[in-house]
Write a protein that binds this DNA or RNA. Structure first.
Length: 354
DNA sequence: GAACCGTGGCC
DNA sequence: TGGCCAAGGTT
């Protein structure tokens, strides 16, 4: 039987009950696709609920402040997505009459919408007969066609998408797109695929040639850069000083403890003193080391030491600063990394550094 | 093409 | 535990 027919039947019987599949709308589809970029379904679900409750449609999101949007994104990662989603909503309202464009070519002009998201939205929200090639689909197509070349380069993606496009049924292209991704996420997984429960095993060249363990091939990745950072916790009247990370940088748009990277041969306390003087503050007394945390980003393996300091002077510097208390932190745009470093403040061991 | 941008679960 | 990986996009 036809591959798409079998896969859609499998999907009809066993599709997961996901919040963006109930009461679907172009807006909810777009929000879910932004959140799902490089992020697993289970992580997205609670964020999706609170986001669409607070911003139920394009108009509400477009008139929101960027910091409010980032606040609801706190902990989800890749914060550029939040700013792009906000900008996309503004564009929908101001340039497209408040309605999401239906065709891929226009969708892809929206900030944060690339080839995958444009295809996914066109298919899922508008039924366009197009193939959405995400990481799941790339793996599924590579196995179906026994593609032996690495699947993660731009050129390879174009070829995989062309292969996938040949599989798209005339009807239910949106369900087909979701079925392919769900197959990749639950059956045709990286590592050891669960071929025994695969509905399209009869169509799989990798399985037929016993190569599901070596397909797909991925390129080797660059090793993470190992980084040491010294963070400073300046307290005043029960509040702590936070700094807004500039857009485009790591954690851009979120608030962090002021920090300095520890240079080669430099000590952590020395870097902490540098961070403090960059704020235009004068240290009073010793730095008190609160401990350290490790946080692994996509490209960096960071060990952050935090130092409590008493300081005088009015913080200046070029960055945007803000005094916050515990209650402010609930709604503020704060990354998981920063929450870790702030955790050092609570259970501070008594250890002095110079 | 390659580098960069988060986070958490899994084995 | 450490490496892998995810409903990618931008520069």
């Amino acid at each position: 039987m036809n591959l798409s027919t079998v896969l859609l039947r499998w999907y009809d019987v066993g599709a997961r009950d996901l919040p963006w599949r109930t009461r679907p709308s172009p807006y909810r589809t777009l929000v879910s696709e932004f959140m799902l970029q490089q992020t697993v379904v289970a992580t997205v679900i609670p964020y999706f609920h609170s986001f669409v409750e607070r911003f139920p449609d394009f108009a509400a999101l477009a008139r929101a402040g960027e910091q409010d949007v980032l606040g609801l994104w706190s902990g989800l990662g890749y914060y550029t997505r939040a700013r792009n989603l906000h900008r996309a909503a503004v564009a929908v309202v101001e340039e497209h009459g408040g309605a999401l464009p239906r065709d891929e070519a226009t969708l892809v002009t929206l900030p944060g919408v690339g080839p995958y998201t444009a295809a996914a939205v066109a298919a899922i929200a508008f039924g366009a007969q197009t193939f959405a090639l995400d990481g799941n689909a790339a793996r599924v197509v590579a196995r179906l066609f026994a593609v032996a070349e690495p699947i993660d380069g731009p050129a390879a993606r174009l070829r995989l998408r062309a292969r996938g496009q040949t599989l798209v049924p005339r009807l239910r292209a949106g369900d087909f797109a979701q079925a392919v991704m769900e197959l990749g996420a639950r059956v045709c997984v990286a590592g050891r695929p669960r071929c025994a429960s695969c509905p399209v095993i009869a169509h799989c060249r990798a399985q037929a040639t016993d190569r599901t363990d070596v397909i797909p091939v991925r390129r080797v990745r660059a090793p993470k850069k190992i980084v040491r950072v010294a963070c400073i916790a300046v307290e005043r009247a029960g509040k702590i000083l936070l700094e807004l990370r500039p857009a485009g940088s790591l954690l851009g748009g979120t608030w962090t403890l002021p920090a300095a990277e520890v240079d080669a041969g430099e000590s952590e306390p020395a870097a902490a003193r540098r961070a403090l003087s960059a704020l235009g503050l004068r240290r009073v007394g010793a730095l008190r080391e609160l401990g350290s945390v490790r946080h692994v980003f996509t490209h960096r393996d960071v060990t952050a030491s935090a130092f409590q300091v008493k300081a005088t002077g009015r913080p200046t510097g070029s960055s945007e600063l803000r005094w916050v208390n515990g209650r402010d932190l609930v709604s503020l745009a704060v990354s998981s990394f920063t929450r870790k470093t702030l955790g050092l403040l609570r259970d501070a061991p008594v250890r002095a550094a110079s």
